[in-house]
Amino acid sequence: MADTVKGTVSPHLTRLLVRAGLAAGLDRSRLAGVPGLAVLDENGIRIPTATCLRVWEVISSPAWEAGGSKRVMELWRPGSLGVWDYLFSVSGSLGDALRVSSRHFTAIADPADRLLVTRDDGGGTTAGWQGPYRDHPEYPMIAEFVPYMLLTLTSLAAGRQLTPVRVRLPHRPPADVRRLVELYGTSDIEFEADHPSITFAEADMDAPLPRADPALAAILDDHARLSTAAARPVLGWLDRFHAVLESAVASGPPGLDQVAGRLAMSPRTLQRRLREEGTTWREELERLRQRRVDRLLRETSLSVESIAARVGFTDSRALRRAIHRWYGHGPAAIRASGPA
């Protein structure tokens, strides 16, 4: 299932983010260039993870000025995150709810994201999120949001507002932490952690939930698994371009005319579409070459001269110059580091 949905997310969270941005006064035209939003309201699909990340970028300023994570979750209603929402309320306890929601985290997230639930020595339970987005400009906001989302869902399932034992965040402490203390309901907030997490008290985790329904929990457990496996990935235009570009490599260094023909458009139209996506043919070809060079250096024993010919460089000197531009060192260092 992970292979089928790799690089995609459920559209549910992205819908919620778009609503939060618009409610905070975001000009709808700012969303016009975000790929994948045209199919956002369809059911049974998954959209590119890049689409969700791009929405985070677009809404970050207006939504966070209007209240941030709290503002987003104020718009949440049961079912806003699909079946994943309901896994919380029908479980036997909050400990069970967190464990089953972590097992089905792909129902709302990319398979590369992980929700790790661990029992602490003191009896409490910690839910921590790990995702490959540390270098993304909006990572601090996403890292702030995930613990609050979990706090909102667990509080609703418990039928009362929970007070977490501790919250950990990966970024540096802000000048004024009062907003975060109010957001999470605790002053025990640690910063510069490895990843964001929220810890709940043992008594809260073990207490029976008021709407526990073992039979329904089993049904939803199956539904979460099957619906994720059956979801149809809907690629944006740039994703289709990347797929065609990669396939064109099989017959040698790809040309603009060749790729444009496979996409049923003129070279001029292709260049215009790439500009609309914030990139260019030259930049995309450079990234493709870099990926291929990196793989061939790490995973084969081909000479630098052979790799240069395969990837479309005029000679080995041109390839060496490109590698220095990309990495700041020569091909030997990449080869010595082994497979990625």
Score class of each variant (00 low, 15 high):
A175N: 09
F200P: 02
M73G: 00
S80T: 09
T152L: 07
K70P: 00
V83I: 15
Y86W: 15
S102D: 03
V72S: 07
L156C: 03
V146E: 04
S155A: 06
V90P: 00
S93D: 10
G67K: 12
A193L: 11
T106Q: 14
A157E: 06
L180I: 12
L180Q: 13
E192Q: 15
M141L: 15
M149N: 01
P140N: 07
L183K: 00
R99N: 07
S80N: 08
S102Q: 05
P147Y: 02
W76Y: 15
Q130K: 08
L150P: 01
F105D: 06
P132M: 01
F191P: 06
D121T: 11
D113M: 10
H136E: 06
G67E: 10
T118W: 03
A66T: 10
R103L: 15
F200E: 00
F200C: 00
V100W: 02
M149W: 04
H195W: 11
G128R: 09
E144N: 02
G82A: 02
R99E: 13
G79C: 01
P78F: 14
Y139S: 03
D85Y: 09
L156D: 12
L180M: 13
H136Q: 09
D188L: 08
G67L: 13
V167I: 14
R99S: 07
G95M: 09
S101W: 07
E65Y: 01
V72R: 03
A175W: 13
P132H: 07
Q130M: 13
T154D: 04
E138T: 15
P196Q: 02
V177R: 15
T106S: 14
A107P: 00
A158G: 10
T125R: 04
I142Q: 13
T152M: 10
L150A: 07
P147N: 06
E192M: 13
L98W: 06
R103I: 07
P147G: 00
I198L: 02
D135H: 11
S69H: 08
R166M: 03
D194H: 08
R77Q: 14
R168Q: 13
V117A: 01
K70L: 11
F200R: 01
A193K: 14
D120F: 00
I198Y: 00
D85K: 06
R119Y: 01
P173L: 10
W76V: 01
V117S: 08
G128W: 01
Y86P: 04
H171N: 14
A107D: 13
L150V: 11
I189F: 04
V83P: 00
F191E: 02
P132R: 01
D194M: 04
G79Q: 06
R179F: 09
D188V: 10
R103H: 11
G128M: 04
G122I: 02
A66D: 09
G131V: 04
A158F: 05
V72D: 05
G128K: 06
R77T: 14
T126H: 01
T118S: 14
A193Q: 15
D113E: 12
P140Q: 11
P173M: 00
Q130E: 13
T154E: 12
V83Q: 07
G92M: 04
T186D: 10
W129R: 07
S69T: 13
R119Q: 12
Y133F: 15
R172F: 13
